[in-house]
């Protein structure tokens, strides 16, 4: 009979906290959740909570002096703002300014990317100059444009007079001033121009990243196949850039539609209320006039439209990316 001798089973030492943590971090789900947590918390506390408060405010009779949300008024605030003539003008202008700015940016960013993706002398200087508008504070750039577009002292008008476009013998004379900010459509176009000038660098950087990720072989193949510049652009580059362009469009649209500074500093919504936009009108009603409920209702008005547009755009981008 042989005695079976076995090593005594050693009790496994309990894992230290560090070991357990390391083990947990090995699991992709845990690590992924942890990495995402800061962004999620940021969105919850700095986007989600204010958004819910805004919805609650829009259905209350809260004022600037008494911001408590204790009286539910349903959709009264929405009904009230829809009776305001200026609200509809502001809605129209918000859509027009955003659309024109986005279209301009898509065209100009595509051109800029084609230039910046090539090598040429002084490219770094051009890149730095190109980024300047984005680096400048909004207020500073708007004030610069305010001077350039001034009714009396505009240097642009002066140049137009010198080259014979304005002035007594000018093409559009005899007036010596365009009154850029004193006429409805010139005012709107001025805002579009300044918004485009300011946000073009951001859109370009986004699109440039996509452009540089297109495999060089694909472009060379197109050249070998005899495709010219435009055929390559429209058949190869733009389809490849589509997902990135959609992201750029979305970013730009959301930035511009929520932007208050350009209009506030350039036209303040005038002449009359003809260049008024929703965020500025919400501010005037909600903060300056003290009616927080109406201000919140105006600010939220575009949310369903923007949400739908964002979902469609992101799904489209995602599908294109998979293809």
């Amino acid at each position: 009979m042989s005695a079976q001798v076995s090593e005594p089973v050693r009790a496994r030492a309990p894992a230290t906290f560090g070991e357990r943590l390391a083990g947990a971090l090995e699991r992709p789900r845990v690590l992924g959740s942890l990495m995402l947590a800061p962004a999620v918390l940021y969105v919850v506390f700095f986007v989600g909570v204010p958004f819910i408060i805004a919805i609650a405010l829009s259905m209350s009779d809260a004022t600037a002096g008494n911001p408590s949300i204790d009286t539910f008024v349903g959709l009264d605030n929405f009904r009230a703002v829809m009776q305001q003539e200026t609200f509809w003008t502001a809605l129209r202008n918000s859509v027009i300014i955003t659309t024109l700015t986005v279209v301009s940016i898509v065209v100009l960013a595509t051109i800029a990317v084609e230039i910046l993706s090539r090598e040429f002398r002084g490219k770094r200087l051009v890149q730095v100059l190109f980024m300047m508008p984005w680096a400048m504070p909004v207020a500073l750039s708007a004030i610069t444009w305010l001077w350039l577009l001034d009714s009396q002292f505009s240097p642009i008008d002066w140049v137009l007079v010198q080259i014979g476009i304005l002035g007594p013998d000018g093409l559009f004379g005899p007036q010596r001033h365009m009154y850029w900010l004193g006429r409805e459509w010139l005012g709107i176009l001025s805002v579009v121009f300044v918004d485009t000038w300011r946000t073009l660098p951001l859109a370009t950087i986004i699109v440039l990243a996509g452009r540089l990720s297109i495999p060089r072989e694909r472009l060379e193949q197109a050249q070998i196949d005899g495709a010219g510049f435009f055929r390559t652009l429209f058949r190869v580059i733009l389809p490849a850039l589509a997902p990135v362009l959609i992201v750029a469009i979305l970013f730009t649209a959301l930035l511009v539609i929520g932007e208050i500074s350009s209009v506030d500093l350039l036209t303040r919504g005038g002449p009359g209320h003809s260049t008024q936009i929703l965020p500025l009108w919400a501010y005037l009603k909600g903060i300056e006039s003290g009616d927080l409920g109406q201000g919140a209702a105006i600010a939220l008005f575009l949310f369903p439209v923007l949400l739908a547009a964002a979902i469609v755009a992101l799904r489209f981008a995602s599908r294109l990316h998979k293809d």
Partner: peptide
Amino acid sequence: MTPEVFAWNAASNNQTFIGGR
């Protein structure tokens, strides 16, 4: 008057008057 008054801010009439306009 001229259309400039549609584009004024709170400082504009001061500046225009001081500028002799």
